[in-house]
Design a protein around this nucleic acid. Sequence first.
RNA 1: GGAGAGGUGGCUGAGUGGUCGAAAGCACCGCACUCGAAAUGCGGCGUGCCCUCGCGGGUACCGUGGGUUCGAAUCCCACCCUCUCCGCCA
Length: 426
Amino acid sequence: MHDIRLIRDNPAGFDAGLARRGLEPLSADIAAQDAQWRSVATELQEGLARRNEASKAIGAAMGKGDTATAEALKAEVAALKTRMPELEAQEKALAEAVQTRLAAIPNLPAADVPEGPDETANVEEHRWGTPRRFNFEPQDHADFGPSLGLDFEAAAAMSGARFAALRGQMARLHRALAQFMLDTQSGSNGYTEVNPPLLVRDDAVYGTGQLPKFAEDLFRTTTGHWLIPTAEVSLTNLVREQILTEADLPIRFTALTPCFRSEAGAAGRDTRGYIRQHQFEKVELVAICTPEQAIDEHAHMVQSAQGILEALELPYRRVLLCSGDMGFSATKTFDLEVWLPSQGVYREISSISTCGEFQARRMNARYRPEGEKGTRFVHTLNGSGLAVGRTLVAVLENYQNEDGSVTVPAVLVPYMGGITKLAPQA
RNA sequence: GGAGAGGUGGCUGAGUGGUCGAAAGCACCGCACUCGAAAUGCGGCGUGCCCUCGCGGGUACCGUGGGUUCGAAUCCCACCCUCUCCGCCA
């Protein structure tokens, strides 16, 4: 959510930011709507002021027992009030129109975000690890996975496309990955482990920015709840409508949760394999901090996510997203992409964004700066640390052997009860 | 799901139709006292929005949304949430 004052004060700057996102200028339109609202609001307030004045006089007259004066004043106010309902309705409609307008505008890119229309303009910043040289043709996990317990067929029979069941060693490996990630993030990386709600109300999803624009990407229950598409929603909303103490910041949360996405706009993309599912697990990282802390928190979050890939010895690269490829609420985003040998490409496995006060405004999440009066909006950040399903795919593909087995990464062996290899089950 | 109680400022908590943005206490800030601190005393201290160059003025806000009234924290309706008891349940 943008501050209307910023648009009033610097319309050109606002439109320039939108242009970097590939959007048409909106400031003139919004400013006009806003001016109209203010004029109506002022007129309404003047009417209310006169009414309040007269009502006080009525109270005073009645206190003195002067019924005649009181009755005369009552008649006067009644006449004065005839125009009020209309003005009130107008004011409300105009205020809502401006709000609705603002709520649908994405965050503006930070100054150091490269400009570009789509992912082709993203900038690779860092590369870690060397893709393994196979002395055989590396296979697609969708091909050799099923014999290791990755069951698409049975899941499709009960749930349809984009669902999978993990069995036996495969389920264990998935759990090991999740546990390892959660332990690491809640340990030395300093994120407080949370087990949050997976079903949330409109306000929460609006707060993080998935609503109102992206309802079609979400699942909704018959009770009107939304299934979270990411724990970013639950973790960030942990501070909604709160006034935090500066000394408590930064606050870091992590959670291992299922995520639910309808993938409405992804028809035909990644239909094979375990890359794009309606339901997947993810270890999420969220930070709530002051504006001054945000850059360091972002760096720390990136480190926290990269650390997982490095511990698993999975080659990856870090990409700074260009203005046109960022999500709705982000002002700056790094993606981590892991090497998938079967496709010979790096695929997104984590997205780490700083949102400035964009989400905080929507959630009304503030803090009280020390030695300053009043409150300020917090900054919010979120990132995957990591997507468990996609990490499983990366492990399977990078650690595959010619005989169809998969070596368990060393760091996971303790989580596997000593199992060092997934072997095909005929 | 049923019955009951309740949601008031950063916190605790008064207030059941008018002069209530709201008593009191705590917390916080300033001043006094003190070598300094504590204790004590005095004063200050909510937020959003609109108008104004500014001083300042106006308006809204007592869970949320409607309604009654000249006037609503206070009365009415709906909803949300919390607590207690009962039922059910992993």
